[in-house]
Design a protein around this nucleic acid. Structure first.
Lengths: 210, 210
DNA sequence: TATAAAAAGTTGCACTTGCACCTTTTTGAA
DNA sequence: TTCAAAAAGGTGCAAGTGCAACTTTTTATA
């Protein structure tokens, strides 16, 4: 589980690739991956190396939309790449397996046990990704920074059943995640602190109202 | 395709339900569906009738988060129900099939062809839902109403390859979808019209800049 | 076809936020 | 250990937006 090839032998993986007629692409560090991804229905797997989905703003600013480590999935159904300003850049030498969505959905495949195992693996990965995306939607739907922060705290609180939230990323990244201006978010964090709702110690936030 | 039971006979569906140990619940119009959904890993199917996922704000305001028609999927992985203020209400007499996610992911199931067919069906439905959710994220990430609207237009433009966008919902619903105040959105639409970027005729918007 | 409810259209105002532009602190690579 | 780059911390101001409170128009439904 958690990786696309869990419970599959090397031989089964080879057969699977054959069955699905996958295309394997290799990229050097800093090369752009699949510049033409935008118009095709595909699901891709990072089989080695790592990459980043980057959005380039009109002013040249680069925004990191997603980090793709080994075993990550991306593609038209799974990520926000359907935009001419989105680029996927290899962070190191990287190999990508590309699967045509229609071939993946061919009912004939269901005869092969190794296919079913694979299918189940990616189903699980996609569902977990979807779950995270839905959490983010809940935050982004909020109109005010304070509400967004409180929603974020609430989600983390329920996940870990703890008043102590250890942020897995920088404050700048958090601002990007909840889609607000970094300084404005920081200002609001300070207000929450001053009003006694939270305590902040570097990356650790304690919820005093729970 | 497009429905969870595509390519399955009545008999196969019965066997499937048996295999997965599903629970079938029946609700009358206006009844709340699965009040305890929040803490369980489940996937549910609306097998007859219809329902709505409703969020109740602190002031009593009801926000419709999602419409669930027959054959819709919902549940912890698929929808934004993981909140004590979210309720799923039957719009008419409604039947719901509840599947335990862990049972769904039991590798033993893969032996049964009817299971694999079913699995493929819901995989496809979930992926399409995910695709739509990612589109919405692209909109919600934008900080300004104008940018959100332009992103929405852009997505619709690419989908239909037409400068004419026919909105499938009311302006109020559009404001909810892009998560901004209705009046403020309307104000911005008027600005875009005054500046010659768009034309609006009731539910039809024409993009003049494309 | 009457009529009530919902949606669309409008506006002023207060508050929030983005943004630009700083300084200070932390981090990470040479 | 040094030193540059990134992140954190901070602030003033203008622009954008939410909100309340309307009027007008459209849509359902009895």
């Amino acid at each position: 589980m958690n990786t696309p090839f869990a419970d599959l032998s090397r031989l089964q993986t080879d057969r699977l690739f054959d069955l699905l007629g996958v295309h394997i692409f290799k990229y050097n560090k800093k090369e752009e991956i699949l510049p033409t991804i935008k118009n095709e229905n595909i699901i891709c797997i990072v089989t080695s190396g790592s990459a980043q989905i980057v959005f380039i703003e009109y002013n040249g600013n680069e925004i990191i939309i997603e980090n793709l480590e080994k075993d990550s999935l991306f593609g038209t159904y799974i990520s926000t790449t359907n935009n001419e300003n989105c680029h996927i850049i290899a962070k190191e030498d990287t190999e990508v397996v590309v699967i045509d969505y229609n071939k993946l959905m061919n009912p004939q495949n269901l005869r092969y046990p190794y296919f079913n195992t694979f299918f189940r693996n990616i189903f699980d990965i996609i569902n977990n990704k979807f779950k995270n995306t839905n959490e983010r939607i809940r935050i982004l739907e909020k109109k005010q920074i304070r509400e967004k922060l409180l929603e974020y705290f609430d989600i983390e609180y329920k996940k870990n059943r703890s008043r102590n939230i250890v942020m897995p990323f920088t404050l700048k990244d958090l601002a990007d995640y909840i889609a607000v201006n970094r300084s404005a978010m920081f200002r609001e964090l300070k207000h929450l602190k001053d009003e006694g709702f939270i305590e902040i110690k570097s990356k650790k936030i304690t919820l005093l109202y729970k």
